[in-house]
């Protein structure tokens, strides 16, 4: 990793043990000081504020919840005009701000292939407003707006964005930090719209103890729920993490948001994960 330049200040207001804070720290350290960040309302915005303090040692623009990719595009173009083409523009947004309300502007920025890095901090719900469901919330998970469990499946952001044929789309999670940093480094070296879907277990929203974020992040990968991979130009798939080595139940059992799932639901989730893996393997097959 070398010498890490810490650009996230201590004293921010994230929950103790928050995976999102840990990830933010590493992502911006990897991007370096020549970076402008766009952070919409989310737990990340809590870490970035409040006035007159700033949690980040780089300039931050906080847009409206639905407009991160459009805002990042505006900053990008203005920096270009000012001759700062090498300055990085990064959008750091939650899943609600990405999969849901911000999706229209993200899709449009991808179509224009804006030269920005978009990192979606995916904690699978609207945590800042008290853990309501988003379209990233997985099947059967309980949230405060799905008290009986969510009846529909999680949207697959990485695949949808790969289908825009953007230069780079990848998944990552802080439990595999080297993989995460490798991907940020790679994305940083490319131009055009690059997206990283970063799975960040939310201690409070998922119902796990403060010390368990990293372990849970690893379980998500090992159970095949969240495979680590990358896609270039929407075509070249590459698996970057360990394979699927555990049953999904190992992942579900440790989280309070799944406390009410029954056996049939666990089996269904297992089938969904298996099918997802199969599809991914097909795509990643060397031709």
């Amino acid at each position: 990793m070398g010498q890490m330049i810490d650009m996230l200040c201590s004293g921010h207001a994230a929950c103790p043990g928050c995976m999102e804070a840990l990830s933010l720290r590493h992502v911006i350290a990897e991007l370096g000081p020549d970076t402008v960040a766009v952070i919409p309302p989310s737990c990340l915005a809590i870490m970035a504020g409040p006035q007159p303090f700033s949690g980040l040692r780089i300039p931050v623009y906080q847009p409206t919840l639905e407009s991160s990719a459009a805002a990042a595009s505006g900053i990008r173009r203005a920096l270009d005009v000012r001759g700062r083409k090498d300055t990085h523009v990064v959008a750091l947004a939650g899943d609600g701000g990405t999969y849901d309300i911000g999706f229209q502007s993200l899709s449009s920025a991808a179509e224009r292939n804006e030269n920005i890095l978009y990192v979606c901090f995916d904690n699978e719900g609207y945590m800042n407003t008290g853990a309501q469901k988003s379209s990233s919330t997985p099947h059967f998970a309980r949230t405060s707006s799905t008290p009986a469990g969510k009846h529909s499946r999680k949207k697959n952001l990485t695949e949808i964005m790969a289908a825009h044929e953007i230069p780079y789309a990848a998944t990552a999670t802080p439990g595999y930090l080297d993989d995460l940093l490798q991907k940020v480094r790679k994305a940083k070296s490319m131009r055009g719209l690059r997206l990283i879907t970063l799975l960040v277990p939310c201690l409070d929203g998922w119902g796990v103890p403060d010390h368990f974020g990293v372990g849970l992040s690893r379980l998500a990968v090992e159970s095949g729920v969240f495979p680590l991979y990358e896609v270039e130009d929407g075509a070249r798939y590459k698996l970057t993490g360990p394979g699927k080595t555990r049953p999904v139940a190992d992942y579900l059992n440790v989280q309070r948001r799944y406390r009410d799932v029954d056996e049939a639901e666990v089996e269904q989730l297992q089938r969904e994960v298996d099918a997802g893996w199969q599809r991914l393997l097909e795509k990643a097959k060397p031709c």
């Binding site: 639905e66 999706f103 407003t129 008290g130 309501q132 379209s135 707006s145 008290p147 009986a148």
Partner: peptide
């Protein structure tokens, strides 16, 4: 948000017979 949350609780408890939908925006 507590308005939304209480209505979904009513619905889950079978006390509120409405279609609740949670769109993207």
């Amino acid at each position: 948000t507590p308005v939304l949350e209480l209505l979904t609780e009513f619905q889950a408890a079978g006390e509120f017979d409405a279609e609740i939908l949670t769109p993207e925006s």
